[in-house]
Nucleic acid binder design. Structure first.
Length: 195
DNA sequence: TATACGATCACCT
DNA sequence: GGTGATCGTATAC
């Protein structure tokens, strides 16, 4: 099950920002690019599985929004929710069997702070916050995560094992899908918690 | 064309 | 615990 397997892996985001060479040059438009790599350990996922899963957008058939879920595995499905938040999903399973894994929570080691708090971990729970932090928006919808240089998934470093040592995987019902009838109580949400 | 609402979050009590 | 923000999408007309 992909949703469970993704726990402990890393979602990696590369952003290039253009900064002015000096505050003076802000106006003049002299900028230099700064590359930022954000590596976020996946700690919470939800599976949306197949055309019959009433919690899934795909259960209402193929539309321009959901057609990416009907495509090949390994692509991204990013959509806007509540008018202000994005949700990041990874398409799984075979073609024409619409399935995806929603990434709900990650942990980022905050390496930006030098000297102090080097090992400070930033915990992000909630798909909306996650996308804000990783700067994921609809421009990253329907991209190939196995080829992209903007957003991809990496295995944990070998010394981390599968990144799950000292952790426990909890299964629970999905969030905010009360309308999904017999699918609402399916334990398709996976959380990586400390033992 | 119009309307209702959601795989959410932040802020309030 | 409750509610407002805010808009793309699906559905109804």
């Amino acid at each position: 099950m992909v949703a469970k397997d993704l726990l402990g892996k890393y979602v990696v985001r590369r952003v290039v920002e253009n900064r002015p060479t000096s505050s003076k040059n802000k106006k003049a438009g002299f900028h230099y690019p700064v590359e930022k790599i954000i590596r976020a350990k996946i700690t919470e996922t939800e599976a949306y599985h197949g055309p019959k899963d009433l919690a899934s957008h795909a259960s209402r058939g193929k539309t321009s929004r959901t057609e990416v879920m009907f495509g090949r595995a390994g692509r991204s499905y990013v959509y806007l929710i509540y008018g202000m938040y994005h949700c990041f999903n990874i398409v799984t399973d075979k073609e024409n069997f619409p399935s995806a894994v929603l990434i709900r929570g990650v942990e980022i080691k905050n390496l930006k702070i030098k000297n102090k708090n080097d090992n400070l971990k930033l915990k992000i729970n909630g798909p909306g916050k996650l996308c804000r932090e990783l700067k994921i928006n609809k421009e990253l919808n329907n991209i190939d995560l196995t080829k992209s240089r903007e957003l991809w998934v990496e295995d944990p470093a070998p010394q981390e094992g599968r990144g799950k040592s000292g952790y426990l995987i909890r299964r629970m019902p999905r969030i905010g899908v009360d309308y999904a009838k017999e699918y609402k109580d399916k334990k398709w949400r996976f959380v990586l918690t400390s033992k």
